[in-house]
């Protein structure tokens, strides 16, 4: 089994950390993982994206060319990555910021109002976790518990109080695609 994921959005939407958490969780489960970010001037305010591989076998190229899933957090990202998803793959769209519908009918398209859900939970910053929750529910590539464990390591003591909120966001996201 191999998941090849593109996660894209504006800088500041947490696309990089979302990818890192998924990668971290994969590592915790002893899977082969890699995380590859876009870098350079495009990171300054433009669209940021990262490629994540989670696989049972050693990973060749860390570059995602035929994505099993694309998680798009804003409209430019939808335009850029919609066509990269393989047939029967997943396209997760943040419908809070993307009003357009996808053109693909050969992939599973999911519209998730991630920002609204995050605001309802009390913190707009967890929109990325809502999307990650939905993604995990669809693919089951890693356990939610592994993501929580990864979060604990990334957050450390000082931000441990944010864990319950993130947990809720993951669960809400999962509900959206059940």
């Amino acid at each position: 089994m191999q998941e090849r994921v593109v996660i894209a959005g504006f800088g500041g939407q947490g696309v990089m950390s979302m990818g890192q958490l998924l990668t971290y969780a994969g590592m915790i489960e002893n899977k082969h993982v890699s995380w590859l970010p876009s870098y350079g001037p495009e990171m300054r305010g433009g669209t940021a994206n990262c490629n994540v591989m989670v696989s049972d076998d050693p990973i060749g190229s860390p570059i995602v060319t035929e994505a099993t899933t694309a998680v798009v957090m804003n409209l430019p990202s939808l335009y850029k990555f919609e066509d990269d998803v393989v047939k029967d793959g997943h396209l997760l769209i943040n419908s809070s910021l993307i009003e357009e519908e996808a053109n693909r009918d050969d992939v599973g398209v999911y519209y998730i109002p991630a920002n609204e859900i995050a605001v309802e939970l009390g913190n707009a910053k967890v929109a990325n976790m809502v999307m990650l929750g939905a993604y995990l529910e669809l693919t089951k590539i890693v356990k939610v518990e592994s993501v929580i464990e990864a979060l604990k390591k990334v957050f450390g003591e000082s931000k441990a109080h944010l864990i319950p909120l993130n947990e809720k966001a993951l669960a809400k996201g999962a509900e959206e695609v059940k």
């Binding site: 890192q20 590592m27 993982v33 995380w35 590859l36 970010p37 860390p62 570059i63």
Partner: peptide, 10 residues
């Protein structure tokens, strides 16, 4: 290269 430098792996 930039990829080795920027990517994350265990």
């Amino acid at each position: 290269d930039g990829m080795i430098g920027q990517m994350m792996e265990p």
